[in-house]
Amino acid sequence: MLKYRIITTIFLVPVVIGMLFWLPLIAFKLIMLTICMLSALEWGQLSGIPDSKRILLSIACGLLITIMTFIIPIYWPLLMVFIENYILWLALVWWLIALLLILSYPRTAVFWQKSNLLRLIFGLLTIIPFFWGMISLRYSNHNDNSVFGSWISLYLMFLVWSADSSAYIFGRALGRHKLAPKISPGKTWEGLISGLLISTIIAWLFNYYVSLNVAPFKLIICSIVAVFFSIVGDLTESMFKREAGIKDSGCIIPGHGGMLDRIDSLTAAVPVFACLMLQVFHVI
């Protein structure tokens, strides 16, 4: 399994870099649309939807994103401004709610585990803001610096992946205190703290050598919060998988499981980071 994970990662890293730096706007949006539709297809399994109807969920999610991305901006530009301003705030609210669900699990699971509709809403609140967070980051300051958005997006992905890897390594080596034993027994507080410390160092080094032109203090604050919520995203998917009685959300990526298994941390980190950078600190 580890061999497949390493091979897949080696293949995916240059693909991600190519997507961020060389794809035109329309192509990048279509790639993100495809990722979100695959994620919606897998979320159907977490929501208890029969196999025959999951494709309908994927299509519906794709249509919703298409309408928001390609139709509303043309015919209702003022509505688009409203959506762009508030969808990231909505994501921040959702991930705070998800944090409360994690902290109170399994006591509060009885309120949502039997409701397919509620779990579908949770899925839309996870997938659609992730799409808009990626688009917002990738094309921030695009008119002034065409590659700034690419660098800030790559930075966040590298930050989350590094924090996740260091949390795993240090958690295995030093972990003694379980973080959320009823959801993910392998995660520890030592791993969480190590991931946050590593992310702080990476934020400082990346900003120093790449020169993102973002105040270091603001970047570090946004980065630490984003990494923390990346763990919330990971635990949230694990919580829903546990309730659904499945190990992986899918098998589309060798060694990694499904699409959601690969982006679960990013679904939370991306919109939260974008919200803080764009709406709170106004630095990009």
Results as ranks from 00 to 15, higher is better:
Y86I: 07
L12E: 05
L154T: 00
I10L: 12
L20K: 01
M32P: 11
F240G: 07
S140Q: 04
I72M: 11
L205A: 09
A274H: 10
I169H: 03
L125P: 00
W89C: 13
Y209G: 03
K187W: 12
S194P: 02
L96M: 09
L38A: 13
W76K: 09
W76M: 13
L20I: 04
G257Q: 01
G233H: 04
H142P: 01
I128W: 00
T34F: 14
S136R: 07
I102K: 01
Y155H: 03
S230N: 07
G48L: 13
L125E: 01
W95V: 06
S211E: 13
S52R: 14
C275D: 09
F70G: 02
F70M: 02
Y139C: 03
A244F: 11
A27D: 07
P254M: 06
V225Y: 14
L159P: 02
F206M: 04
D51P: 10
E190Y: 00
A40E: 09
M239A: 10
P216M: 13
I193V: 14
I121S: 03
G133S: 06
L92N: 12
T34C: 11
M68N: 08
G171I: 00
S104K: 13
L260T: 08
I246P: 04
S146H: 06
R242F: 13
D261E: 05
H142M: 06
L90F: 14
A98V: 04
I83N: 02
L276N: 13
D234C: 04
F273R: 14
C36V: 15
S39Q: 10
